[in-house]
Design a protein around this nucleic acid. Sequence first.
DNA 1: ATGTTCCTTCTTTTT
DNA 2: GAAGGAACAT
Length: 700
Amino acid sequence: MEYSNDENLLDEGNFDREVIIKGLNDSQKEAVTSPLQNMLIVAGAGTGKTRVLVSRIAWLINVEGIYPRNILAVTFTNKAANEMRERIGQMVGNTAKTQLWASTFHSVCLRLLRSYAQYADLKPGFTVLDTDAQTALVRRIMKDKNMDTKDLKPSEVACRISSLKEKGIRALEFSKSMRSRTDVFFDEVSSVYTAYERLCNQENSVDFSELLLRTVELLERNDEIRNLQHRRFKEILIDEFQDTNSIQFKFAKLMTGPDSHVLVVGDDDQSIYGWRGADYTNMERFISEFPNVKQILLSLNYRSYQKILDMANTIINDNTDRLMKKVLKGNIGEGEDVEIINCATNSLETEFVGSTIRMLKDQGEKLSDIAILYRNNYLSLGFEQKLTQRNIPFIIYGGQKFFERAEILDALAYLRILVNEDDDTAVLRIINVPARKIGPKVVADLRAISSERHCSILKAIALLEFYANSENADKALKTLYKKVEPFYSLIKELKAFKKNAPLSKLTQHMLSVTGLNDFYQAKDEKEGRSSEGNSRFGNLGVLVSNVKDFEEALNNQSLSEGEVLENALTFDDPLLTYLSNITLVSTGELNEDGSNGAPVCDAVNMMTIHSSKGLEFKYVFLVGFESGILPSSRSEGNCSEERRLAYVGITRAKKQLYITYARARNIFGNTQISGASQFLRDIVRKYNESDSKPYIIRKA
DNA sequence: ATGTTCCTTCTTTTT
DNA sequence: GAAGGAACAT
């Protein structure tokens, strides 16, 4: 954010209509310059959809004269939101950039809920439960109900609660719903859901899906707040619309006023999150439920050579449930054959990929132009080894996230308590971490008090302190208090410290006085973790520097006339601001080592096909293209989503695509013989007669 | 209350 | 083949 005023002036209003539409093709132009109205843009892979979206926003501001603060742009990841904001800033200037809301569904909802907390029955510092905390809470409930956690796992119940919420179904409604004969666990899920809802309210916590559901209910119920949004957001733009679920659709509808317009961009062929509740038929629903929707199709692909696109077109053509059939047409020429590599074993496959990448590097290619894409995370291991052997650096995206590591969650739990003292989930996580002789018995006693008094655990301890110190105190209470006293003093001390200390000092102080630093340092030693990414203690250090960076950004921000922080979530309390941001901004934003920003050196990209969506690479290795893996053996009923996944993988490649498969693969110790994916066999069958095939099959 | 050992699990994961 | 639970022993 170090722009001088002069640059700012140069920036402003530099893009008039000619500049905005320069270089766009006809359908792109139509999308960008269309008069204000509801629009559905169907954008095939690589057809310049982000560019259209950004140009449209620039057009709205500079040509239509819409105020940036009246525009809401919704994306699915924070990364996408930030990117969009940056690009808009470049086109229309930084003032506009900061006034525009560009964020994820969840961030928008969190913002609304924080501002209208009281109207949504929430107390100001409410906690946003991440998946881990949500599961912990469900596990606690199931344990309390003496449920068997073997047949029905807490994580599964948590998942089902989330998907119910995503359909807008509350516990009460669910309990009254028709008992489906197929659902053997109906009673269990229903009773856990009911308790879960009650506890979340008591603990002043909301989970990810609750952010949406609570906001939707608030908007439905409260005319005033809803009208306020209608007056504010005149133009709403939603990216990746094929990935919206039903609550998000509802949210979009509620946010749209009678004189507002919504523009959605999506590609039904790239819908790969159906298993999470995403419903690409929302694109059809949009046409029928929003008035006068103008439809625009983008199918000119700027990314890949035609042979790659032919492969993609052929695969996706087999899907019978497509909303709009589109054929990707490129404009940069035929290109090289797609190479299909038939490998005898998975180690020959990894060997092939390793040596080919070595060759590309020797030819002077940048490693960052190369990607290895796989269906399952566990497939990455072999490639890691082969690349390491050849001294080729790589970055693995995904896998365990920094903010999902146990040590980080512990540290954050301590911090959460300081913002939301009702957060029992956080308290229970760390009340005995590091071990301070508070075992199940003590915890059970504390929880007995808290449920008797209908209060949080910390409140229960406060009550306990009062009674234990009163004159004719019960002996049992006294001993109980003695056991939790050190923990309670610790929390009191941290609370007092927080009042006068900046965020980073507080974090450092917390890590040392709680004993987390020592605890994890000792643990590292015992487990022989010393390398950089491996050390848990080291990760705590990374957390401190992350907090420091954040604090600095926050301070710089407040210096420049109260501008809103780029991530668009600021609250009075810096700690609350930090926590709010990391729970919704954490994943994928940090590198493996916890640093943010560009990787240290040129490296091969490794990731799942899912996480490659929206990205492109000059060279793509699509590996493990076998039956049982792609399509996954677990997705029997839903082959078309797997086919779309293959389609997404193929369309990531710009110049050269390698598809590899192993006839025999070692998985978890035992060898499986599966052979080429049916998708591949379908393609080969189709081109069998033809003498111009877009691919060549080789043996490795 | 805590340390040990066995046993299960092993898609994908924007928030 | 490794990691996280759960059950069991100390």
